[in-house]
Design a protein around this nucleic acid. Structure first.
Lengths: 351, 351
DNA sequence: TTTAGCACTTAAAGACTTAGAGTGCTAATA
DNA sequence: TATTAGCACTCTAAGTCTTTAAGTGCTAAA
């Protein structure tokens, strides 16, 4: 356990290091502390903190920098989120007050705000798709053997895709098939639908339609799209600033941003779904981050809860040394705001 | 005018510098030339080439590097495109042989191949939309006050967008409006359609529909999407390798890639549309590139001609020192291949 | 427990040296 | 006249040395 003064010293070394990115020396720190102690006293405490593994040196006679464990301790015991500045607040309100056509627009927009306000990179994920149901399926003929398949879910999300239809499938067949799909499968969870088109649905179609295979491929493709998570990444370019010229990690991250599965893995919270602490904001850094290339970064994740419509995730990726107080305050506010807007949206929607 | 030997020297300095990125000295060059001359002779020619502005030095006693004018001269007078390697050829054929659902997929795919084979950044643009006509407009009700608007063009491209429909607009009104649009405007060039919905169409709708304004906003939005160019950028990440740690220019380019208008400006060829030389491959470098931040890069543009369906552009952005022979051979092949595939596509399509 | 004092360490920056690659010029050569 | 050998000169890059400033750890006194 740290003495009060040691905690104060750790806290201030982290604060100063975040501002300057330079090792902090005892004399310099002396002038920055609210208490009056000599630099020798500070040196003694620093030595103890280093012994505990909370501080590091860049070389044997340098000032101290926080170690990963130091950040960990700070985050777990010392951090107090600060209030959002009135300036930031105004920006947030104003952005959320825009008119949106789709929920995904709101989720995407919150990634943009978050990255703009922090100069880091934000990742957001819409409310989870666990028990989303099929709300309807349409095929629209576009002429020239093209059709657009449209799938609407109970969450209000829409997926569409365009297909070249082989000559062998007739228009009437397609219409019949659509009718059967809607009659039989609307109202069922997407996961169930996905399973059934592998099992009993083909036979069901076989009775009325001459070539169910091509049709089911189309339906299956759109279904897959609708059933997978949709991530939004804001402030990709900010990465170039805080990546400290580490081109290889920038590349890793940029390609990671393009892959749904990798992003899902990155954001997956250790206790996701257990309920307990899941509305706490979590910070992971160093070896706690799973793709090992990211050990010089810090990832802050927060979930937001949309009343009766699942929960989503907003996250922020930045350097290990961030002004955590401000950042976490900000994240907390945006999380709440996003939850509120989405809850509003759905309450309109379900009327 | 250069002597033969001077041309040989310039050509080889460019070749070696492209491989090593190091200034080329007279002794080193002596061993690389197919002719037997002393380093002193080479030095004399180098001095003359420098006087003409075709070579530069990095400092007073350094070897020579090509100047921008040197590249210009090389490109205009000395360059001979080389044949595509059988390996590259196989990759190109294989990629283009995939099954595509839409023409835009092919165009996008060619940006990917081009960037993969070169390790630079490729930009492609589909056949131009000058005299594309409206082929059809659909509104599909999705439930919960949402509709999807779909616009099909004579070029086979499809745009869609989802709208929240105000309660004030009724379903029958929308259907009537769609019917009028299709009756009156199908077959007309998009530009004409865009003009007419500002002039006589509103009055036309007014007779049958109670609130044409909201409807025309929707139609106008999708129309605008369909009428604007669609660029594809491949190999964005490669930029990080050849940008020589110039983060600011990387940022400029990345944001440029997101803006249709800026990309259009960048690719717009000085003689675009004049017909004459327009199927020549053009290289622009240094001050010839309009956003001044790009003066350290080289941009190669080539147009491809889709029989009876307009012409598009494929382009490659890389460092000033590229293996131009290989690159231009490659670009020429892909340009032809792309034109052929699209011509095939349309000939199927118009049956 | 805190502090003053001091010897010691290290990185960063500047001065100096050296080696190596290259140039330009002159005078000899084919 | 065009080419070449030879040589003095230039400049960078890399290494060594020195100095300075910031910082530490330890000891002994308060």
């Amino acid at each position: 356990m740290l003495t009060q003064r040691q905690a104060l010293i750790l806290k201030n070394i982290i604060r100063i290091y975040t501002q300057t990115e330079q090792p902090v020396g005892s004399k310099h720190l002396m002038n920055e502390l609210p208490i009056q102690v000599s630099s020798a006293t500070i040196r003694n405490d620093m030595a103890k903190l280093e012994e505990m593994g909370l501080l590091d040196k860049t070389h044997s006679s340098s000032g101290r920098i926080p170690s990963i464990s130091g950040y960990r301790y700070y985050l777990d015991h010392l951090l107090e989120p600060s209030d959002v500045s009135s300036n930031d607040l105004a920006i947030i309100q104003q952005t959320f007050n825009q008119q949106y056509q789709m929920i995904d627009d709101i989720v995407e927009q919150s990634a943009t705000i978050l990255s703009t306000l922090t100069s880091y990179t934000a990742i957001t994920l819409g409310p989870d798709v666990q028990d989303i149901k099929l709300d309807g399926f349409r095929l629209v003929a576009l002429g020239n053997h093209q059709v657009m398949a449209i799938l609407v879910t109970s969450a209000g999300t829409v997926q569409n895709q365009i297909f070249q239809v082989p000559e062998s499938i007739s228009g009437e067949d397609l219409e019949k098939a659509v009718r059967i799909i809607n009659d039989q499968l609307v109202g069922q969870p997407l996961a169930v639908v996905a399973k059934r088109i592998q099992t009993d649905v083909p036979q069901m179609l076989m009775k009325y339609v001459s070539s169910p295979k091509g049709f089911l491929d189309i339906f299956g493709d759109v279904l897959k799209k609708a059933g997978s998570d949709h991530f939004y990444v804001g402030g990709r370019l900010n990465l170039l600033d805080f990546a400290n010229n580490d081109v290889s990690s920038v590349k890793t991250l940029y390609s990671l941003f393009e892959k749904n599965d990798d992003l899902a893995n990155l954001l997956r919270l250790p206790d996701f779904g257990t309920g307990g602490d899941s509305d706490k904001i979590m910070v992971r850094l160093g070896d706690e981050l799973t793709p090992h290339t990211l050990r010089n970064y810090s990832l802050i994740t927060a979930t937001y809860d949309v009343h009766n419509h699942g929960r989503g995730v907003i996250a922020l990726l930045g350097p290990t040394s961030m002004p955590y107080s401000r950042i976490i305050g900000l994240l907390d506010l945006i999380r709440e705001e996003l939850a509120r807007r989405l809850t509003d949206y759905y309450s309109n929607f379900d009327d």
